[in-house]
Structure formats: structure tokens, C-alpha cells
Nucleic acid binder design. Structure first.
Length: 475
RNA sequence: GGGACUGUGGGGUAGCUUGGUCCAUCCUUCGGGGUUCGGGACUCCGAGACGCCAGUUCAAAUCUGGCCAGUCCCA
């Protein structure tokens, strides 16, 4: 088996090799950017979705589902929005052999599918807040190179859409989305930074956009998702109004929260290593793999014991896989490490006789697990593993930021840079040119490195109203 | 939108300059047999490819043209 390219010096080659070796996505489907979910990758995606669903519903939203096709007339109602998406939508212009009188857009995102119906659903202040989400596929005609999970044309998309009574309530919803994402990221063991995007880079039609950015090394960042405050920007063109308690008609203030399978890409990118993928236990397709080690002198005991172990763990609710194949144990170790399984249990003659298993987690920590206390000890090992994984990721996260005191320092940077910025677009663009990337925006939460008060703007030197901003190179 | 480059089994490749020695090399993968089994086993047998369409030629993976797909750089 060929070794993986080095993650440090050939990141994207490494990433693609891991995705393929771990059987997470099959990119051989003959449409660019539209990939197949094989069984193993699909398990990871389903586990990921479960967490999104759990945390979103805990934050007070309900699942709905809207159609995939949007009439051109509805799509065109919000002018910034259509301008932002025009170049990347797929059109359905024919029904059978007949040209459609109103062409249909295959949703690139669902605002314009949902909001005409919101206008019907929302009549009274008693209908508010209206918090709904859907997990559906959306389509964007990407022209750049596509990458499994990171940049695709058919997106497995989570989108929450809400209507609130006023701007303050909408701002609160943004806060509860941030809190929900914090809990999701805990399960993914992914460190991230919420960043308010600069004006020129916000979502088309938004009042403001908060991106959830995750550093992945070499100054590169991945946007994991985004939360938008729309104010009345959509409710006015779509006429989403309600009658307030005082009898007046008011436009709702809206928010959205979007995530995608890019989260899976981030999990691979952040946690993976020279051996392959590394899954946090909440996402892992298999949390535990049990490997029997036959041996010439061992008889049936290892296989029988391995079966017992796997059965009991499965009954206990763990995702466990018994690898009883003909390969030698070493080959299995390599394969399951590549596939990112958090915990491996080995069962040979010694283990069968002593009723005590050898455990090795994906970060290399070895231990023993008493078979009599399986149901207690295995979950404990998984918790230890998750903790260690989180600590490793957090250490890398802290390492990935550093302050830059001048534009010159930005060139060729291998970190995400924190700069003092006056807030002007002109200076923002100068910063972007200097780092050959993007001014990601202003952090919404404290940065993981010690910072004093911001000094004069790195671009223009003005000292009026400076703020810390982060600049990087989006992947 | 402009330019450069690339397409060989499931994955990765050799061959292309100078057409023939190629019913296409090697690694991996896959199916089957045997010996094995505490960190990528060995061995035997077998499967599987020249992006598509034309053209040149006695002869095309190799040369020419068009198309398709992809990658990178620039706007």
C-alpha cells in the first residue's frame, strides 16, 4: 500500500489521499463536484447530521423541507441576493420537450424558496419566533477546482431560517446559533473562531454575516459555516409581515445559519495525520474495531471472545465492527488506522485466557480493558481519546495565530495573522493583497492568543477606532 | 473570459521526443488455491487500461485536427 503524501508539505494531496483511502467519498462520478457517498463515508455524514439535528432542535428549531426548484420570479426578488448567486445557479428551463414559461432555479440556498411561504405562515406576533431548519442538497455551479467535502457542486446543506419580531430578537437568535455551534464543535473536537465578515464579503442580502473559521495550517482557513442577520432585507421584498400586539403591521427580522459536509472535510483536515483519518468518537463510522488474532496455538478462543466482545458493545449502543477477515492482524491495524477508528481492541490467546483485552486508541495510547467491565471501560477509553484529540487540536489552533505588526510581515505568512485595522475597505484590500488572501473579519469571540489594545491600522497607520482583525488564506 | 499543461486497468505509473521490438511496464487493487497469522506475509493461478471522433500511414498509446474532461496560472 502506498504511503500518504506528507500532510505538512503537500496538504491537498494528503487530504485527497486520505479521503480516498478511508473510503469517505467516491469522486469518480462523471459530473465535476458531484461525488458519491459510499457506505463508510455515509455513516460519518449521518453521525454528523445527528449532532446538527440534536443541537439545533435543542436550540428551539423544527425540521421542515422545501422544494428544490425555485421559480425565477421568486429567485429574483432580493436584488443583492440574486447578484451574488447569479453566476453559480443551475437552471431548469425545460419540462420534457417544452420550454418552461417561467424557468426554475435549482436551489443554491433556500431563502427564495422558503420566504414566499413564510409570508403565508406568519400573520401574528403569536407566530413568532418561527425557527425552522432543513437538511437538503443544494447546487452551485462551481467553476474552480472541486474537492470532496470542501468545494462541491452538490452540497449536503444544513440551513436554519428564522423570523423574529424585531432586530434585537434576531440578534439573540444569532447568539443561540453561536451557542449551538459551540456544542456541535465540541462533539467534532474542532476549534474555530467566529468572525464577522467585512462588508464586502458578507452573504448576498445579509445585514451582517458571522463566519465560523477554522485554521488548517499554512495560514489556510476553512469556513465551517455561517450565521447571518438579514434584518428586513428579505422580509420586505417577500412581504413577511405580522400584526403586532398593538395592532400595527411589522416586518419580521430574519436570520439564517448554514453548515455543510465541509464539516466532515474539516474533521479530516484538522485531526488527520500521517496514518490517515482520525475521527472523534461522535462522528466515527465505527467507534471500536475488534480484531481477533488467531495464532497457530490459540484455537477458537480468540475468535469466540472477539465475537462476544463485539456483541456486548453493540448491545450497549456502541458502533462496533468485528474484523474477522483473513488478513493478518498488522494489515488490519493499518487499514483501520487509515479509516480513523478511535479505538482498537485486540483479542489473541493471551487476552482470551486472561479475560483482559489490549486496547490501542487512534492516537497510540495503549491500555488494557477487563472483559467483565467492557461496557464501562470502553466508553471511558473513548472519552479519554476525545479529550486527547481535542487537546491536540486546540494546541494546533493556538499555534496557528500570530500578530502581524505591518503589511510586510504578511507576505508568505504561514500563520493566520491578527492585525490592527481601521475598518476601511481600502485598507482591508491592502491587507488582502499583502497576505495574498482575505481579510476574514473581526473576531466575535476572544482570540486564543494574548492581545493588548489594537495599535494604529497596519495599512494606513490611522489610530482612530482601530480593531483587531484576522487575515488568512481561505482554502 | 485569456493563457499553459494533462488525459494509459478500480488507484498510481512506464512507454510518446525518433510510429513497428506493445495482443502495453511496474506497484497497488480485485477473484481463486495453498502455506501462514501478536504491526503492511509468501507463493501459484486468474481479472482489469491507451478520454472520444476523424485523419495521415503498410502500421498509431506514440503524429495531425476537432471535441470532451480535468489541472494550474492570469482577469
Amino acid at each position: 500500500m502506498a504511503d500518504l503524501p506528507p500532510k505538512e508539505t503537500a496538504f491537498i494531496d494528503w487530504y485527497l489521499a486520505v479521503v480516498e483511502a478511508a473510503d469517505l467519498s467516491d469522486k469518480r462520478y462523471p459530473v465535476k463536484g458531484m461525488n458519491v457517498w459510499p457506505a463508510y463515508g455515509f455513516r460519518a455524514r449521518r453521525n454528523l447530521d445527528r449532532i446538527l439535528i440534536r443541537e439545533t432542535e435543542a436550540s428551539g428549531a423544527e425540521a421542515v423541507e422545501f422544494p428544490a426548484l425555485i421559480p425565477a420570479t421568486e429567485f429574483a426578488k432580493e436584488k443583492e441576493h440574486i447578484k451574488g448567486f447569479d453566476a453559480e445557479v443551475y437552471w431548469v428551463t425545460k419540462g420534457g420537450l417544452t420550454d418552461l414559461d417561467i424557468p426554475l432555479v435549482l436551489r443554491p440556498t433556500s431563502e427564495t424558496a422558503i420566504y414566499p411561504i413564510f409570508a403565508v405562515w406568519v400573520r401574528s406576533h403569536r407566530d413568532l419566533p418561527l425557527n425552522v431548519y432543513q437538511i437538503v442538497n443544494t447546487f452551485r455551479y462551481e467553476t474552480k477546482t472541486t474537492r470532496p467535502f470542501l468545494r462541491v457542486r452538490e452540497i449536503h446543506f444544513f440551513e436554519e431560517h428564522t423570523c423574529q419580531a424585531n432586530e434585537a430578537h434576531a440578534t439573540e437568535r444569532v447568539g443561540s446559533n453561536l451557542a449551538a455551534f459551540r456544542r456541535m464543535a465540541e462533539a467534532f473536537a474542532l476549534p474555530y473562531l467566529p468572525v464577522r465578515r467585512p462588508e464586502w464579503d458578507k452573504f448576498p442580502g445579509a445585514f451582517y454575516s458571522i463566519a465560523l473559521d477554522c485554521p488548517v495550517g499554512e495560514a489556510r482557513t476553512l469556513q465551517l459555516g455561517s450565521i447571518h442577520h438579514y434584518r428586513e432585507n428579505f422580509s420586505r421584498p417577500y412581504e413577511i409581515r405580522y400584526e403586532a400586539a398593538d395592532g400595527s403591521q411589522q416586518y419580521v427580522h430574519q436570520t439564517t445559519f448554514g453548515l455543510s459536509e465541509r464539516l466532515l472535510g474539516a474533521i479530516v483536515a484538522v485531526h488527520g495525520d500521517g496514518k490517515g483519518a482520525v475521527f472523534p468518537s461522535a462522528i466515527a463510522p465505527y467507534q471500536v474495531v475488534v480484531i481477533p488474532i488467531p495464532g497457530s496455538d490459540a484455537g477458537e478462543a480468540p475468535l469466540r471472545t472477539a465475537g462476544e466482545v463485539a456483541d456486548r458493545l453493540a448491545r450497549h449502543g456502541l458502533r462496533v465492527h468485528l474484523d474477522g477477515g483473513d488478513e493478518r492482524p498488522g494489515a488490519k491495524y493499518y487499514r483501520w488506522e487509515q479509516a480513523g477508528v478511535p479505538l482498537r481492541l485486540e483479542v489473541g490467546r493471551r487476552e482470551a485466557e486472561s479475560r483482559s483485552l489490549t486496547s490501542v486508541d487512534r492516537l497510540g495510547t495503549k491500555g488494557r480493558v477487563a472483559i467483565d467491565r467492557l461496557e464501562h471501560e470502553v466508553p471511558e477509553r473513548l472519552l479519554d481519546f476525545d479529550r486527547a484529540l481535542r487537546a491536540r487540536a486546540h494546541a494546533a489552533f493556538v499555534e496557528s495565530f500570530s500578530v502581524a505588526g505591518s503589511l510586510d510581515e504578511l507576505a508568505g505568512s504561514t500563520r493566520v495573522r491578527v492585525v490592527s485595522w481601521c475598518g476601511s475597505e481600502a485598507c482591508g484590500h491592502r491587507i488582502e493583497t499583502a497576505i495574498d488572501g482575505a481579510l476574514l473579519g473581526t473576531p466575535e469571540e476572544p482570540l486564543p492568543i494574548p492581545l493588548g489594545a489594537p495599535g494604529p491600522c497596519v495599512a494606513c497607520g490611522a489610530s482612530a477606532d482601530p480593531r483587531w482583525a484576522v487575515a488568512g488564506r481561505p482554502l
